[in-house]
């Protein structure tokens, strides 16, 4: 019996009783914490130190990112359901939830692509009627100075100031941090898709051999948690004053 299962590396006796690969996964996640920690630290060190705009309060749309955050969190739920279905040995339900996880993850990445392109082509507008009435970001105040000149059309002044990684420190730190997070999600989707297709091959993904389905969710949930931190620190603290 020991011989039959030895090559899966799952049932080998270990000192602690924990599986080797699972322990490696935890060590890797610890390392990845430092990776994202350093990226977030860089972002925070350079916060409010950009020489030119656009700044977070110019480009961020909290409603849009809230939706994409919700989508990513739901993907964690479907991941849990997929895992539960596998342990019950109901392969059909398992595949449905696994595919849902991939789709939700891909939707999140799609949101990110949308966000990046919007930011890169960011065009900001000032309604000249708002000047002195509403609170304007510094970039908008600058633009508002053109109100009343020939640049004003129909009570609006506008200007394209795309945010690219080269534009300012905010662009460099923001795209690097969220870009690496997006890359992590993409890698997770590739992993889950591989498992999805493997599950059609007999004996490759089974309740007894659910280890791969133990590691992939671990990674997936970790990437989600990192996003919660990014959403709070970068998006919410970036837009709402007082942070």
């Amino acid at each position: 019996m020991a011989q039959a299962t030895a090559h899966h590396g799952e049932h080998e006796p270990t000192t602690t009783g924990l599986n080797h690969r699972k322990m490696l996964m935890w060590a890797f996640l610890g390392s990845d914490c430092m990776f994202f920690g350093t990226l977030i630290a860089t972002y925070l060190v350079y916060k409010n130190r950009s020489i030119t705009g656009p700044l977070p309060e110019d480009v961020f749309s909290i409603p849009v990112t809230t939706v994409s955050t919700f989508v990513l969190l739901m993907s964690s739920m479907s991941m849990v359901l997929a895992y539960a279905a596998l342990t019950r040995n109901s392969m059909k339900t398992f595949r449905i939830w696994l595919a849902s996880t991939c789709i939700l993850g891909a939707t999140f990445v799609g949101f990110q692509v949308y966000e990046f392109t919007t930011f890169a082509n960011y065009e900001h507008k000032v309604y000249c009627a708002d000047v002195g009435v509403k609170e304007l970001t510094p970039l908008k105040q600058q633009l508002a100075e053109k109100c009343g000149t020939e640049d004003e059309h129909n009570g609006v002044v506008e200007e394209v100031v795309g945010l690219t990684p080269r534009t300012n420190l905010f662009g460099s730190t923001f795209y690097t941090l969220t870009g690496f997070h997006g890359a992590h999600v993409t890698l997770g989707i590739v992993w889950l898709l591989s498992l999805f297709f493997l599950s059609f091959k007999k004996g490759m993904v089974t309740p007894e051999k659910n280890l791969d389905l133990d590691l992939a969710p671990l990674y997936w949930h970790f990437v989600d948690i990192v996003w919660i931190v990014i959403f709070t620190v970068v998006y919410l603290f970036g837009v709402f004053p007082g942070f």
Binding site: T42, Y46, R49, S50, I51, P165, R166, N168, L169, G171, S172, T173, T176
Partner: peptide
């Protein structure tokens, strides 16, 4: 990019 570029605030 601007991480260590003094001219851009790095």
């Amino acid at each position: 990019m601007n991480f260590f570029n003094v001219a851009r605030g790095g």
